[in-house]
C-alpha cells in the first residue's frame, strides 16, 4: 500500500475532497492498482477528467493529469492520444459528465475505437452540485431536482458503449474491488476504446435522500443486486429481474483509430520520398 502511494500518488495533495463513505476513493485505488498491474510507464501515461466529484481524482495521481471542462474529458483525451499515440490515456469521469453533457463524446470515442480507457464512476447523481438527477439515476429515485421522484428512464451506459463501437466494455462495483481491478486492467490492455462502468455509492446526497441506509448498506445493496455475467447465463429471466450485470460484458477487436491514421502517415511519407 505504502509503495503504491509513493509511486503513484501526489501525497501532498491528500486528503482528498470526497465525503466520508464515498466510493470514489475505492475506484481510484482500483485504477492505480490496475495501472500497476499492467505496468504502465507513469511518464507515458496521461489521466484526463471532466467536472464533478469523480473528476477530481486525477489531481491526486502522479502522472500527467488534465482536469478539463464539464463533459469534455474524452474530447481533450482524443486530442492528447491522437497527437501523441505513444501515450497511455485514461479518462476518469462520472455519470453526469459522461452520460449527459459529454454523451456525444462518449459515443464518438467508442465509434472511433480510439485507444482510451474510460472509467465511469457511476454514483447515480450529480454529487458536487448537491444531488440533482443524472441520466443514470434510476426511475423513481428522489433528487433535488426530482423531488416527486425521477420520471426519466436511465441509460444502460454499457449497452450504449457497445452499440456505439467500444471494443471492451465491463461493469464493476466498489463492493468487489478484486474484480474491478481485473476489469480495469483488461480495459487498459485493450487496444481500442474501453469503458468500465463502476457502481459506486454517494451516501451524502443520494443514499440519504433515498433512504438507502449507511455506506455499508449501500455496498451490501451492490452485492445483492448484481449478478456476474457468467452466472447470469444460467439464470432465468425471472431470477434476473431487477439485477445489474457485472463483469466483462463485451470484448472484440477492431482497427484502432490512431493506428489507422499512423498507417496513412507512413504510407504518404513513403510515397513522398
Amino acid at each position: 500500500m505504502q509503495e503504491l502511494l509513493d509511486k503513484y500518488f501526489r501525497k501532498d495533495k491528500l486528503p482528498h475532497i470526497w465525503c466520508p463513505g464515498c466510493g470514489h476513493g475505492i475506484v481510484l485505488g482500483a485504477v492505480v492498482r490496475a495501472i500497476d498491474k499492467v505496468n504502465l510507464d507513469p511518464d507515458k501515461t496521461t489521466v484526463v477528467s471532466g467536472i464533478g466529484c469523480s473528476s477530481r481524482a486525477p489531481g491526486y495521481m502522479k502522472f500527467d493529469t488534465l482536469h478539463t471542462t464539464h463533459g469534455r474529458a474524452l474530447a481533450f483525451a482524443t486530442g492528447v492520444k491522437h497527437a501523441k499515440p505513444e501515450l497511455n490515456v485514461l479518462v476518469l469521469t462520472g455519470d453526469g459528465d459522461a452520460a449527459a453533457i459529454g454523451g456525444n463524446h462518449l459515443i464518438h470515442a467508442a465509434r472511433r475505437n480510439i485507444d482510451i480507457t474510460a472509467v465511469l464512476f457511476n454514483n447515480n447523481i450529480y454529487g458536487m452540485t448537491g444531488g440533482q438527477y443524472s441520466p443514470l439515476t434510476p426511475t423513481g429515485k428522489v433528487a433535488t431536482t426530482a423531488p416527486y421522484g425521477n420520471i426519466d428512464q436511465a441509460f444502460d451506459i454499457c449497452n450504449l458503449a457497445i452499440a456505439a463501437g467500444a471494443t471492451y466494455v465491463a461493469r464493476g462495483t466498489v463492493y468487489n474491488v478484486t474484480q474491478l481491478i481485473g476489469l480495469i486492467s483488461k480495459g487498459i490492455q485493450n487496444k481500442g476504446f474501453s469503458l468500465i462502468e463502476v457502481i459506486t455509492q454517494c451516501p451524502t446526497v443520494y443514499g440519504r435522500r433515498n433512504k438507502m441506509g449507511t455506506t455499508i448498506d449501500m455496498m451490501k445493496w451492490q452485492k445483492e443486486n448484481t449478478v456476474n455475467v457468467k452466472a447470469a447465463k444460467k439464470m432465468s429471466k425471472e431470477q434476473l429481474k431487477g439485477k445489474i450485470l457485472v463483469g466483462e460484458l463485451y470484448s472484440d477487436t477492431r482497427p484502432e483509430y490512431t493506428e489507422q491514421y499512423t498507417k496513412i502517415v507512413e504510407r504518404l511519407q513513403k510515397e513522398g520520398q
Binding site: V48, D64, A75, T78, N104, Y261, I264, Q269
Partner: peptide
C-alpha cells in the same frame, strides 16, 4: 499526414477545440 501531422474531424465544435487543447499539451 504528409508531414507527419495529425488531422481529425471531431463530432462537434466543442470537441474540436477540446482536442486542440489536448494536442497542444
Amino acid at each position: 499526414p504528409k508531414i507527419g501531422g495529425r488531422f481529425i474531424q471531431m463530432e462537434d465544435e466543442i470537441a474540436s477545440i477540446a482536442a486542440v487543447i489536448g494536442a497542444s499539451l
